[in-house]
Design a protein around this nucleic acid. Sequence first.
DNA 1: AGAATAGTGTCTTTAAGACACTATTCT
DNA 2: AGAATAGTGTCTTAAAGACACTATTCT
Lengths: 252, 252
Amino acid sequence: MHAEQWEPPAVLLAVDLVILTLRDARLHVLLVERGIEPYRGALALPGGFLRDEHEGIEEAARRELSEEAGLVDVHLETLGVYGEPGRDPRGRVVSIAHLAIAPRLPEPVAGTDAAGACWTPVEDALSSGVELAFDHRQIMSDGVERARTKLEYTALATAFCGETFTISELQQVYEAVWGIRLDPRNFYRKVQGSRGFIVADGPMRRTANGRPARLFRAGPVQMLNPPMVRSAHVMPQGGSAVQTPAEGGGQA
Amino acid sequence: MHAEQWEPPAVLLAVDLVILTLRDARLHVLLVERGIEPYRGALALPGGFLRDEHEGIEEAARRELSEEAGLVDVHLETLGVYGEPGRDPRGRVVSIAHLAIAPRLPEPVAGTDAAGACWTPVEDALSSGVELAFDHRQIMSDGVERARTKLEYTALATAFCGETFTISELQQVYEAVWGIRLDPRNFYRKVQGSRGFIVADGPMRRTANGRPARLFRAGPVQMLNPPMVRSAHVMPQGGSAVQTPAEGGGQA
DNA sequence: AGAATAGTGTCTTTAAGACACTATTCT
DNA sequence: AGAATAGTGTCTTAAAGACACTATTCT
């Protein structure tokens, strides 16, 4: 389609990661402090350039996931392409953004490559007070929005949980990511009725006091039909994303 | 995050286009015959390399859309990234695939750049009989799936129609893309009840005989809530994706 | 006993699915 | 008149939303 003489331009390819997890019933994202220019000292999403010509894109994303966050075997999907000319002062850099979902893990990031990596509440990270490198605020915002949407019609919520989990833990995922309160009774009915979403795994107690909860694990089904609904079915008084950890159960 | 000496590898960036439209009540995709190696003579999606370092990615996609299909002002969105090493024998080429939706247009492609461009029924294009260049079968398949899914929860269907359209034309979009038959009465109720999806625009006659239909245009709403449902609400006898062109309107 | 969390049941409302029926044009 | 397409109405069923209530553990 083009004449012989002309040579197509080359670009640098990077991967960036929006890594989400739940901590203290709030949605957190992993941020690193940049050690080099440009944006030295600013916060940024973990990421980097392709190592060499032969490295696959998802391969590079998994490498960064492991190097910068010590995470393996977590949910990972392509989020989008960010390649506006001028987004990186070093030249034409096109970033393939990825969304990763990690289960709760007690230790922050312990002993990994990027020294300054830290879990930050998404709410804080998106507030205007924080300076983020490049177009990483936009990428992060798109990643969070993707997670919110996919929670509705896929089984993605289980990626936030460990191997096994209780129904109220699963509910906390929805509440934290969507930033709303749900009715635990309707949530039980809904989630139990969605066959293949979660499967029983034996009883166990948790959280000090109260009746022990049954344990479940992720079922075979990836697409939820009918989906979980984000509109409506909010709690009467509810609304604010933030809540004290203590009031999870909802006594009248 | 990396030492001084090391230089990140460069890649070639391409855009490819899955352009969908409706013709004779069937979903079609635009394919071009490749005039150069590799895959000379095979069918491929329209697309090409970035023109220069300063061209934006969407800008390049719109340029190809105009050059290769003569289309302007149509719906365009990023579909995904296809960058496996080895997908292109010429070297490391990363393609940003896009999905475009064009309204019905009588003329095939008339007087544009790519001589061999032709609208092909998606069903035929995806059948194993056709040889497609690179990973374009996968890209096309992903594009069609994206369109099917977005028809459910967004107002994308109106992008297949002209400025104004009748409700049964809109129904034909859903039927062609989903490959199922819908009950026109329930479709009316559903689509009319979804406020902001479509707005009235004055009456007019069409299709030779029968009662004239009211005209509508796309409304302000982009996200449908509640969504159109693809499961269920199929016609009793319906089912098969294929239908003779003659029965598109419903000749009993 | 009382606090705390887990889990079930039931009623109301909304919207989907399956029809029958009327309305307006054409030949 | 009859064929053809447009549009409305009504009944049934499924699932969401709003509760009351029981169950099992802890201190």
